[in-house]
Design a protein around this nucleic acid. Structure first.
Lengths: 110, 110
DNA sequence: GTCACCTGCAATAGATTGATTGCATGACGA
DNA sequence: TCGTCATGCAATCAATCTATTGCAGGTGAC
């Protein structure tokens, strides 16, 4: 892993095609070929996007005969959301303190 | 804007340098020059990262004389987290249904 | 066994991103 | 006014990412 889990999940979620794929898999697990039949990009491009999602832990492979179906993993997203939430909460607290200080005195001694 | 707000926030959060910057700004708002003095990358690189964060709505500019201080915006992160949470919840529900179906019968008729 | 289909790997081209250097502009302080 | 310091813009380079094509390997159907 080149980066922490949250960063990797965010990076994976930082692309609209991957959101689209994730949404489609959420409706119904599908193979890369099946996804390619409904999206304007090639199967290989989709395979690469899915690989990113797999590495981020957001989807899992499921073999069905010669077919590989991809299934989203809700828990991974929930976990990432939890950490983001914690970060947001921490910042909120600190930022509130900062804001109070800023309103009280714009510039104390340089 | 080239993409939706959530995607943009995720994309901005998909880089460790930007997390680092965000954390440092959370501790204490600073200028790009001040950040550059504490990070191993150039001021310009930091300025570009901060620009990404500003475009994502995660930080705001604050002029103080000839200095430009950057302040994180907790609300933006909270909002994004909220949407991610909604997505996660939706998927969780659907995925639970899928899982139940999968466990009951591996492959029903196509 | 053979055919068809789906997956997987490799190589490649184009676009985007991350980081750097150099210079110009603008504001504060002496 | 002049010097200093911080910001801002432009150009450039390297690395990464996205998407494509082509082909080899495997699995299931007949």
């Amino acid at each position: 892993m080149t980066s922490s889990a949250v960063v990797q999940v965010c990076s994976a979620l930082g692309d609209e095609n991957r959101w689209q794929i994730l949404r489609m898999l959420g409706e119904r697990p599908r193979s890369a070929s099946a996804l390619a039949a409904e999206l304007p990009i090639s199967r290989q491009a989709i395979a690469q996007h899915v690989e990113v999602l797999v590495r981020a832990g957001l989807v899992e492979r499921e073999r069905h005969g010669r077919e590989v179906r991809y299934v989203p993993v809700g828990a991974a997203l929930s976990a990432a959301v939890g950490q983001l939430q914690a970060a947001a909460a921490g910042w909120d607290r600190r930022l509130e303190a900062l804001r109070r200080r800023a309103e009280g005195s714009a510039e104390v001694s340089g």
